[in-house]
């Protein structure tokens, strides 16, 4: 939400995507995507289903390995390291350490059903050795309270509504104090009346100055929180800019067609 003119120039970009290509079998999913996200901004990725939005997001934290190109988060290449003028694949443990600095919120929450809410949120800081069990649980309580579930810390995920589960998933992502949080269609699996509670949590994060990259179909929400809209079509970015331009005066025919269908 904040304008980042001078601050952004001083710091490296939060996210940089350099010419990423990705194939699934014989199908090209990402076709030379390049993108820069300034720190503290909110970027919303739009596009029809199958346009490569989710894949792009999963490439950002190396859940998918790109066939060509690479991604940097906070100036650090993800999954690879520079050696001379080539990139070498990192060891598993190094990739995991990088991932723990990137928050990821899944469409289907993917909470751990056999753990209480408290343990769901506290698991990662303990596992990565950042906090003691005690500290992690204190933090987890704090974060659950922040997403409005401070009174349900002992409950199991399946005892909650979808909206509540997604709020827990956001708290779980926040527990690692990530520099960037990626949201993969965070409200697509929710009943319409539950969408609002999740969006309001994301809105708080957006105004709080965390860098967010969000894949969503909620155009109204995108208009409200986004600093930058990226429109993806068949694995390419066809249009990009502030919501006022991309959503209200789209230039590319694909963007116009998409918006006329969803608005």
């Amino acid at each position: 939400m904040t304008t980042t003119g001078i601050a952004a120039a001083a710091r490296p970009p939060a996210v940089e995507v350099h010419g990423v290509h990705k194939w699934f079998g014989g199908r090209r999913v990402l076709d030379g995507v390049s993108l820069t996200v300034a720190p503290g901004t909110v970027t919303v990725i739009l596009g029809r289903s199958g346009s490569g939005k989710s894949t792009l997001l999963r490439v950002l934290n190396h859940l998918e390995k790109p066939e060509a190109g690479h991604v940097s988060i906070g100036g650090e290449p993800i999954g690879v390291r520079r050696q001379g003028n080539r990139l070498r694949e990192l060891r598993e443990s190094a990739i995991l350490a990088q991932r723990s600095r990137i928050g990821f919120v899944f469409q289907n929450f993917n909470l751990f059903p056999h753990l209480t809410l408290l343990d769901n949120v506290a698991a990662a800081p303990v596992a990565t050795g950042r906090l003691s069990r005690q500290q992690a649980q204190t933090l987890a309580r704090e974060l659950l309270t922040r997403v409005g579930l401070g009174d349900r810390t002992g409950a199991y995920p399946r005892q909650l509504s979808g909206g509540q589960q997604q709020r827990v998933a956001i708290a779980r992502a926040l527990a690692l104090r990530p520099g960037v949080i990626l949201f993969d269609e965070p409200t697509s699996a929710l009943d319409p009346e539950l969408v609002g509670e999740v969006l309001s949590v994301i809105r708080d994060l957006a105004t709080g100055g965390t860098t967010l990259v969000i894949v969503t179909h909620e155009i109204g929400f995108a208009r409200e929180v986004a600093d930058e809209i990226v429109f993806l079509h068949e694995g390419r970015i066809v249009e990009q800019g502030p919501p006022a331009r991309v959503l209200d005066r789209p230039e590319h025919p694909r963007t116009r067609e998409f918006l006329s269908r969803v608005l």
Binding site: A97, A123, A124, A127
Partner: peptide, 27 residues
Amino acid sequence: VDPGQTEAAQALGLSRSRTLRRIVVPQ
């Protein structure tokens, strides 16, 4: 066990063996 569980554990930076012991096997 839903593959999403392993993915979520990976995204949180949990190691392979810890994911297996703490997340996958209990389920």
